[in-house]
Design a protein around this nucleic acid. Structure first.
Lengths: 190, 190
DNA sequence: TCAATTAACATACGGAGCGTATGTGAAAGG
DNA sequence: CCTTTCACATACGCTCCGTATGTTAATTGA
């Protein structure tokens, strides 16, 4: 039943980290909410950052699955890529993802380039881009560089959208601008 | 001489926050390094976050000045805009800016949309974009949405470049990809 | 000129929180 | 049946933040 213990701790941590944030989350309160004490925590995760890393891994895995599903549902690679970008833009508006993945994560665990799973997420994008470059759909650009630019743009834009006075209008404006920028990547301008 | 006291505290804090980070910076060590005690700190800045905000204001003001200078040096608005994007990309590679402005800042002070001066930085970009749209250089897109996308893209790409095995090659790849994306914003594809 | 107020700090204190060291009970293994 | 190990709980010390309380010097006002 150690898996259940770990899962309940991660669940409680995810709730706390996603709402009040990493710094304000007390390990005593966290473990008490899971019906345990800090002893269990340090036994399974080493320290507070270890638990936080476990939460990040879980969320990142979920995001990868969701993005993969969106991409697989599309007709061709290019629209699949565009759709997953839009899906990421939408996901990055969720408060839990914003708080844990975009804000506290990098500050606590250091740059996301140490995180194995976020790299998966980007690697998936870069692979799709690589194919598009090989097929001649995209101009011959470095796939990872493009993926990083798009990743950052969507992340930041999503936070802007979430805080905008009119989120729906902001989402439309961001999507339009994003589409325009993506067009610049195409080999032949549509 | 209260300005000197404030300045020395901010300088010490900037050094500490920029190297070991906000969470690991002890206020006792900080103030001792400035030849003071925590009493001075809480008198002038209220709390730890207040001092951090003062540091962020200072750095953000410096960044705005630097970007404005780059933009003013250009021949036409469009190249001025492109140059300041490139300058921001270069600035975001500086460890102090990465740590304080990009990583710890949002986590500690909340989303940057509450920060007055970072908004200045973006507003400057948005104003330049607005002019370009009016002049017909750019497609009719929402300037702030474009500014947000570019801001996020450069931020993220800069961190990628800083951590890449070959930063120079990564910078070139990112610049190429970035130029391509910017081309998508133009009304008439070059 | 001198008392009184305020500003600019230093000092002292309480409380919260993290990490570790230690204890305990149950399960597994010989 | 004994022992070892695992999965926790308990207890402790340490650091650090924020506040409350001095203390000194400058300024004000009569």
């Amino acid at each position: 039943m150690i898996a259940a213990t770990r899962a309940s701790l991660i669940a409680a941590a995810r709730e706390a980290f996603g709402t009040i944030g990493y710094a304000a989350a007390s390990m005593d309160d966290l473990t008490a909410a899971a019906g345990l004490t800090r002893g269990a925590l340090y036994h399974h995760f080493g320290d507070k950052k270890g638990l936080f890393a476990a939460v990040i891994d879980q969320i990142d895995a979920e995001m990868t699955i969701r993005l993969r599903a969106v991409s697989a549902r599309a007709a061709d690679p290019w629209t699949g890529f565009r759709d997953s970008c839009a899906a990421y833009l939408a996901m990055a508006r969720e408060p839990e993802i914003q708080r844990i993945m975009l804000r506290d994560g990098p500050a606590v665990l250091g740059d996301p380039w140490g995180w194995p799973l976020q790299n998966d997420c980007i690697r998936m994008m870069a692979q799709g881009l690589n194919e598009l470059v090989r097929e001649g759909v995209l101009a011959p650009l470095d796939p990872e560089a493009v993926a990083r630019l798009i990743f950052g743009a969507t992340q930041h834009a999503a936070q802007w959208i979430a805080h905008a006075p009119d989120p729906e209008a902001a989402l439309r404006a961001a999507t339009d601008a994003f589409d325009a920028m993506l067009k610049g990547l195409l080999r032949k301008p549509a």
